Simulated assay, not measured.
Amino acid sequence: MKQRMLTAILAALLLLSGCSQPIMSPATSSEQTSTQAKSGTDTASSNTAAYPTDDLNLPRVAVELVKAIDGDTISVMFEGKKENVRLLLIDTPETSHPKLGVQPFGPEAKAFTKELVEQADRLELEFDIGPNRDKYSRLLAYVYADGTMVQEALLQEGLARVAYIYPPNTRYVDKFDDLQRISREQALGIWSVENYAQEDGFHPEEQDANKNNNNNNSAPTTKTPIENREKPKQGCDIKGNINSKGEKIYHTPQSPYYDRTKQEQWFCTEEEAVQAGFRAPRN
């Protein structure tokens, strides 16, 4: 009986030993796991895009430039015909509008676009998933000059605003919004004049008002030395300004418009400015 039990135990041990052989050595397993973990981290890091649209690699159509018409419009040869192309999702100030004429920063935007497209060795169009023509029969596209998207470059320079957002042609609108926000915070280009670029377009009267205010604040015959101008009391460095619309707006030293704001009144705290009827600037 004891011999049978001993034989059974030995057989079981041999069976378990045969089934429990590792698929790979512990060293190999640990090494591979470590490599996979490192590789996975690196892959995730390298493939992480700031925006889902960054790595789309969508097809583009090569075109030949005819001329730059405006900051947001160019003329190209497309499929054997001369076509005007309206840059999707942005708007730049006008330079030759029959009613609006030349708007502030319009010439700068046109010159910027003109330089980009004229110096490019390769000019390409990328269409969105919606209609590729507007009501004026212009092509609607994202324009690339040697791989650089012209819309992004204009927004980064503060020479365009995000506009004319008509779904489903909204592929890059999230990225464009962020580029615009950064330029606005830095008071670049069109954003250097408060209330000039608004949701309904551009308002040149805001820049004219600022110029008039500057002229009115300086004496026609005698200029006051900078060091003799009114200075705020210590700790009272908030500027209160009244714009052309009669709006009372206060600016703290952190405001992007602070340095170019002419104060009508100094305040020590934002609460003091609010009590006096002033509001914070709208970004």
Rank of each mutant, 00 (worst) to 15 (best):
L139W: 03
L140P: 02
Y144D: 03
A145F: 06
A145S: 14
T148S: 12
T148C: 10
V150I: 12
E157M: 03
G158V: 01
G158K: 02
A163K: 09
I165M: 08
Y166N: 14
N169V: 09
T170D: 03
R171L: 14
Y172F: 10
K175R: 14
K175M: 12
D178K: 11
D178C: 07
Q180L: 07
I182Q: 15
I182W: 08
I182E: 13
S183F: 09
R184H: 07
Q186F: 09
A187E: 05
L188H: 02
G189P: 07
G189R: 04
I190E: 02
I190A: 04
S192F: 07
E194D: 13
E194R: 13
E194W: 08
A197Q: 01
Q198C: 13
F202L: 08
F202Q: 05
P204V: 10
P204S: 11
E205A: 14
E206M: 13
A209Q: 09
N210Y: 12
K211S: 10
N212C: 06
N215R: 12
N215D: 15
N216V: 12
N217F: 12
S218E: 15
T221E: 14
T221M: 15
T221A: 11
P225I: 09
I226K: 15
E227D: 15
E227H: 14
E227A: 15
N228G: 03
E230S: 06
K231E: 13
K233D: 12
K233V: 05
Q234I: 01
G235L: 08
D237N: 11
I238D: 00
G240M: 00
N241L: 02
I242H: 01
N243Y: 03
K245C: 06
G246S: 06
G246F: 06
G246M: 04
G246L: 02
K248L: 05
K248Q: 08
I249W: 03
T252F: 03
T252C: 01
Q254R: 01
Q254F: 01
Y257C: 00
E264H: 11
F267P: 00
C268L: 10
